[in-house]
């Protein structure tokens, strides 16, 4: 087994109860695993929430993380969403400095290219809403950085398995 660390996306269905998130988070902190990002929300069934998290681990750590998560009484189901069989998306709201005309043009060009939306406009800024997978978000952010990102709010990854055909 190679022992390289990489990012894994795990998603789990959990009981929608107070304290469940802290059981999951506590498991990571208590055992020295890290959480890169985390998303939690109710599913169609109000008794069940979906937690999606991204963690950096090597394969044997991942095995432990998965086993430990499954062992939590409130975790109903756990899946690894890392491979190509899952769709992964993040979202960001990015406030970009936009003073000069050429800056504004460049931003709008990027917005189009990355299929984002401008959700707020001011004399000196745009707020852009962007969704995409992690790579796309990184690329967009890297292109916007030189123009000047004033503020950014990012969600973690959410993911769903593609339905079998």
């Amino acid at each position: 087994m190679d022992n390289q660390t990489r990012k894994y996306t795990l998603t789990m269905l959990v009981d929608n109860e107070p304290g469940v998130l802290s059981r999951v988070a506590g498991l990571f902190s208590g055992r020295g695993f890290n959480i890169d990002s985390l998303c939690v929300a109710e599913t169609i069934d109000p008794k069940v929430s979906r937690i999606t998290l991204v963690t950096e681990a090597n394969p044997s750590m991942l095995e432990q993380i998965e086993k430990q998560l499954r062992k939590l009484i409130n975790v109903i189901k756990l899946r690894d969403m890392t491979g190509s069989r899952a769709i992964r998306r993040e979202m960001a709201l990015i406030c970009v400095r936009a003073l000069k005309a050429d800056q504004r043009d460049e931003i709008l060009r990027l917005v189009q290219l990355f299929r984002c939306k401008v959700v707020d406009v001011g004399p000196a800024y745009y707020i852009i809403e962007a969704t995409g997978d992690a790579e796309k978000m990184e690329a967009l952010i890297n292109l916007l950085k030189p123009i000047g990102i004033k503020k950014i709010a990012r969600t973690g990854t959410i993911a769903l398995y593609r339905e079998p055909n």
Partner: peptide
């Protein structure tokens, strides 16, 4: 009985 014990 506990899978987490195995290969830990």
């Amino acid at each position: 009985i506990d899978p987490t014990s195995i290969r830990k």
